[in-house]
């Protein structure tokens, strides 16, 4: 098996982005295309699984051809096809998985099944300046909020995770409740940028606990209750200030726990991953706190934080090096499993 010039075609359809990318040797992005469905789902106020799946099948073939064209590669020069097969919306995942399986079979190239959350972490490796092990990873997205310890490639120890809502989910629900718009993360961030935290007070849930568990459902409910109370009281309820306080309460817990985790494990780097890693306030605060504690923060470029296929190809590259290939029976799974399986390994 060749050791360099390894080109992986990555395919990602786990939620509302259809994405195809070609990555060489794990960090050279030859092409990275994302067909976003945000505008399609906006009128529903959130991602509708059946609508997302219908869009995936409409664009997957042309997006794949464009990604190869942009990479300047004939398809035969792809070394393997990597596809996100869990976790995610099952109907959406199945489009990418079915297409990738058939494409790999048709090319007679190896197929690699990639865990979408692992791929988010691997977005940190899509650079010349690669992370150094051991590291602590904060994975924050619409479906996950986890702190993981990583000593070597492809091995993750779960240090703690959310007991209820994921951070991104809380952003979405609060944004919808406050009528800030869709998608929730950018909507709350934009509203918060027009105000400052502290005018209202929301709890920093679990900050007093000595572990790495999170809970955002209570924070979400507190924000909603406070908003209702403000509206009833006839006071001048300022939505931007509430958004700023909500964002601050959430970010503060994420940052503190991440720093504590890094200190406990005595690591020099924290890797940020997942769609919520695109949040400006989180990036700003975690960078400042880490610097004060002599810890480096590794954050993927903005466009590599949200769902994309370059990260899938990158994670697939490390599986390729291990010879970890999938069979013709590769299936899609809504639940993660992978990160948990390797926990405490």
């Amino acid at each position: 098996m060749k050791q360099s010039g390894i080109r992986i075609l990555g395919i990602e359809t786990s939620c509302d982005e259809t994405a195809v990318a070609v990555v060489e040797d794990g960090n050279i992005i030859r092409s990275n295309l994302v067909a976003s469905q945000i505008e399609i789902h906006r009128r529903f106020g959130g991602v509708v699984p059946e609508v997302a799946s219908r869009r995936h099948i409409e664009v997957i073939a042309s997006l794949t051809e464009e990604a190869l064209k942009e990479a300047g590669l004939p398809r035969q020069e792809i070394d393997a096809v990597a596809v996100a097969n869990s976790p995610g919306l099952i109907g959406a995942l199945l489009v990418g998985v079915s297409f990738a399986k058939a494409y790999a079979y048709g090319l007679n190239k190896p197929l690699i099944g990639v865990n979408h959350m692992e791929a988010h972490i691997y977005a940190n490796f899509l650079t010349e300046n690669k992370p150094i092990f051991p590291a602590v990873c904060l994975v924050v997205s619409g479906g996950h909020t986890s702190l993981l310890y990583m000593e070597r490639h492809r091995e993750f120890e779960m240090m703690g995770e959310t007991r209820d809502d994921a951070a991104g989910e809380a952003f979405d629900k609060v944004a919808r409740f406050l009528g800030l718009g869709y998608p929730g993360g950018p909507a709350v961030q934009n509203a918060a940028a027009l105000a400052s935290p502290g005018k209202y007070h929301l709890p920093r849930v679990y900050l007093d606990r000595n572990d790495f568990e999170f809970s955002f459902s209570g924070l979400k409910t507190a924000a909603m209750n406070l908003w209702n109370k403000l509206q009833r009281s006839g006071e001048d309820a300022e939505v931007n200030y509430l958004a700023a306080e909500f964002q601050e309460a959430l970010v503060e817990v994420l940052v503190e726990k991440s720093i504590n985790a890094a200190r406990q494990k005595n690591v020099k780097q924290i890797l940020l991953a997942g769609g919520v890693a695109a949040n400006a306030r989180l990036r700003e605060r975690i960078t400042a706190e880490a610097s004060a504690n002599n810890i480096q923060i590794h954050i993927p470029a903005l466009e590599l934080c949200t769902d994309n296929a370059a990260m899938v190809a990158c994670a697939g590259y490390y599986q390729y090096l291990d010879g970890d290939f999938a069979g013709l029976d590769l299936n899609a799974f809504p639940q993660s499993g992978l990160l948990v399986k390797k926990a405490c390994g």
């Binding site: 398809r75 199945l94 297409f99 790999a104 079979y105």
Partner: peptide, 15 residues
């Protein structure tokens, strides 16, 4: 339908 269609498209393009 999408499993069949995605598989057909994948095979058709690759081969």
């Amino acid at each position: 339908l999408r499993i069949g269609m995605a598989s057909a498209k994948g095979l058709a393009l690759a081969a």
